[in-house]
Nucleic acid binder design. Structure first.
Length: 728
DNA sequence: TGAGGGATGGGACCA
DNA sequence: CCATCCCTCA
């Protein structure tokens, strides 16, 4: 009856048209997950099952939220205005702004990103004279975030020894500092929002009555606190529609808890569990490989992808002697694919860790192939942007100590550590912000800091009432930031970024979505002025990488960054034991399963063609490492693979043999001693451990030992005189 | 104050 | 090897 539902398969249709009950949709890679989610929303509204205002849809990334809004808008004749669609953090921010008094926050609270948070932790540690060797700031930060994600405040912490007592104190001191500065970090957004809803019964009832339909994307990535937050909102008979894929859970390291899927099913007595297993993305061979690989994991809810498309090309496997050769191979393939007419943007080169990109970039650059690297610093995380934002934060709230400290002497204006310390002492003595302590300074510090304070005061005055973009522009000039970077030898990029910030401000003002989201908070709270809205936007939206659109470029990124994307052709590089699976995960079973899911994600990115490659030797951290092929290659069905190089590890060629150091060096005086049979890099076979490669040696004569990488069977030190080794 | 030397350590990510 | 941090010295 409805064109909305055309072309959905049986399971998709079933999911989209479920009654108003909890549902868990196990959506395999490429199974039309986003389509189901967005069509569900459109269907609920179109059929009158739900009003726009009763919809709450949660994602993890701004990109996913934007895509959801765009697709829902395209399906419905009405505006998406009334719906709440956003990230966990964005939605919590919205709730907290609207009810800041109930939440115990100033209306203009500042959001700290992890950099800001770390700086804040450092400041607290310094003030309390904490030994940073015993309590490294990063660890303290980690501890605080960990506690918050478990929903634990300092008084509730379990204190069992001196260290944990100290941690609890530091956490409390950090919280106090945040309160004083009106600052809120990322986990705090969630926890504060959770506590608000939990304690404030009328408010909770209000939102429970409103959001009859709660939809969650990437449910496998939720942490414990997010799960509890959802549980709270879903109380009172609301329907929680969770979409996720346990096989694509790759964020355990940032506290994602896959167990939430099973917990959800059990605790909510979910009546509807639907599996979407038909894949619309990849050819059969690629899916067969993915299915076979993931079947090695024990902890799964269980799913098997299939496709109506043909089996397509086999997976091409390439073994290189060095990482350099591997990179050239990839570059040459890319070149030839492009010559055959494939758009370069349809080609992705994936790797496990960022350090691997360098060799590949070099090879692409040498062959003149345009490429684009994802990851690295985002726009709003760049130092010049953070500096500019710090000035803007001071305009919005001069009591923002973090912002003040960041730019009080940047660009340098003769305010040294001495003056800053005097200011901090003055503030501590009176229990005020740094800004308020400026007037109480004496001597040299008073003059220098005083001139900075006047600069800020003047800026506040002169930008009052100006449009946002003009405010930003004015600040860039008056602060001396632009001038400073213009004078720097490599400052052109930074100057361009600063100019881009003006554009971003202008675009933000016009952006209807952002304006609507922030100008009219629920419950009739005061509207937030554009500057504060922009600052919140900058903190929550770290800014997609530079907008260098236009050039058709090959895409380079980590496997993590590739999640959710798809390409015509995918290269998975560095398939070596120790690298992928990463050595720090290879030892524990859970870690290994996560690595395998990561490989699963990588494989399922490819539509038509997939290359798998690895190198025998790789320059990592400045030294050559000798690796064996990843066990993941062995876990793929031989029938779908096509080896481009002879199957199995090729022995060292003559040149490599001569270059490789002998395992046991002749002792001094042993001139002309015959070369011993083993060399670093050589392949050997051991009766028990199987195939391996010699990666190190020590000792001499009868005591000589060799270190051998047996891949999945581990790294072993063996006594040359005893172990039964055969050259392979 | 800030440039430059030496030690250090190195997985992945989004808000 | 490289980036980052801390510390020294001009």
């Amino acid at each position: 009856m409805l064109s909305l539902l055309d072309h959905l398969n049986r399971e998709q249709l079933q999911a989209v048209t479920l009654p108003n009950q909890h549902a868990l949709i196990l959506a395999g890679a490429g199974s039309g997950k986003t389509r189901v989610l967005t069509t569900r929303i459109a269907w609920l509204i179109q059929t009158g099952n739900a009003s726009p205002a009763s919809i709450l849809a949660v994602t993890f990334t701004n990109k996913a939220a934007r895509e959801m809004i765009a697709r829902v808008s395209a399906m419905l004749p009405i505006s998406t205005r009334g719906m709440w669609i956003g990230t966990f953090h964005g939605l919590c921010n919205r709730l907290l702004r609207a009810h800041h008094r109930d939440a115990g926050l100033p209306q203009l609270f500042q959001i700290l990103d992890s950099q800001d948070q770390l700086a804040m932790v450092k400041r607290v540690l310094k003030r309390l004279n904490v030994d940073e060797d015993r309590f490294p700031p990063r660890e303290v930060q980690w501890f605080i975030n960990d506690a918050k994600e478990e929903g634990i405040r300092p008084p509730a912490l379990a204190v069992h020894d001196e260290a944990s007592r100290r941690h609890a104190e530091l956490y409390a001191a950090y919280e106090e500092q945040c309160r004083q500065e009106g600052a809120v970090d990322f986990p705090e957004l969630l926890l504060r929002c959770y506590e608000l809803l939990e304690r404030n019964e009328p408010l909770r009832a209000h939102y429970q009555a409103r959001f009859r339909h709660i939809l969650v994307d990437e449910f496998q990535d939720t942490n414990r606190l997010q799960y509890r937050w959802l549980k709270l909102l879903a109380g009172g008979g609301n329907a929680l529609f969770a979409v996720g894929d346990d096989d694509q859970s790759i964020y355990a390291f940032r506290h994602a808890n896959v167990g939430n899927m099973a917990d959800f099913e059990r605790e909510f007595r979910v009546p509807n569990v639907i599996r979407l297993e038909q894949n619309y993305r990849s050819h059969g061979n690629i899916l067969d490989a993915a299915n076979a690989l993931i079947s090695h994991n024990r902890k799964r809810l269980g799913k098997n992808l299939w496709t109506a498309a043909g089996e397509g090309d086999p997976l091409r496997v390439f073994e290189a002697q060095t990482d350099g050769y591997e990179a050239s191979f990839v570059a040459e393939e890319v070149q030839s694919l492009a010559r055959d007419g494939l758009a370069r943007r349809e080609i992705a080169i994936l790797y496990r860790s960022n350090a691997q990109s360098r060799v590949i970039e070099h090879a692409l650059f040498t062959q003149g192939i345009p490429y684009r690297v994802y990851g690295g610093l985002r726009f709003f995380e760049r130092q010049e942007i953070k500096h500019a934002l710090a000035y803007l934060r001071l305009l919005a709230n001069p009591d923002d100590d973090g912002a003040l400290l960041r730019v009080v002497n940047f660009p340098t204006r003769g305010i040294g550590a001495r003056s800053v310390e005097a200011l901090q002492d003055a503030a501590a003595a009176r229990g005020t912000s740094l800004w308020q302590a400026v007037g109480h300074l004496t001597g040299k510090a008073a003059a220098a800091v005083g001139s900075f304070a006047r600069l800020i005061a003047t800026l506040r005055e002169s930008t009052r009432g100006l449009p946002l973009a003009e405010t930003v522009e004015h600040v860039l000039h008056a602060s001396g930031l632009l001038e400073h970077y213009r004078g720097e030898r490599d400052g052109t990029d930074r100057v361009e970024n600063l100019e881009e910030l003006v554009n971003a401000a202008a675009a933000f003002t016009q952006d209807e979505f952002a304006a609507a989201q922030l100008a009219a908070p629920e419950g009739g709270g005061e509207a937030i002025d554009p500057l504060n809205a922009f600052l919140a936007h900058a903190a929550l939206e770290s800014g997609e990488n530079q907008a260098a659109e236009g050039v058709d470029a090959v895409q380079l990124m980590t496997v993590h960054a590739a999640k959710g994307l798809e390409f015509q052709v995918v290269f998975i590089t560095g398939l070596e034991e120790g690298l992928f699976p990463h050595e720090q995960s290879a030892h524990d079973p859970d870690g290994l399963e996560e690595e395998r899911r990561l490989m699963y994600v990588a494989i399922t990115r490819a539509r038509a063609r997939l290359y798998l490659s690895f190198a025998q030797t790789r320059l990592l951290h400045g030294q050559t490492r000798y690796n064996v092929a990843s066990r993941f290659l062995d876990e793929l069905p031989a029938g779908v693979l096509k080896w481009l190089t002879p199957r199995g590890r090729t022995p060292l060629d003559d040149a490599a043999w001569r270059a490789a150091p002998p395992v046991v060096r002749p002792r001094r005086g042993d001139r002309g001693a015959p070369a011993l049979p083993y060399r670093i890099g050589q392949n050997v076979v051991h009766a028990k451990f199987g195939q391996g490669v010699i990666v190190g040696a020590k000792g001499s004569g009868a005591d000589a030992q060799v270190q051998i990488n047996f891949g999945a069977n581990g790294m072993k030190w063996l006594q040359l005189g005893i172990a039964k080794l055969e050259p392979a």
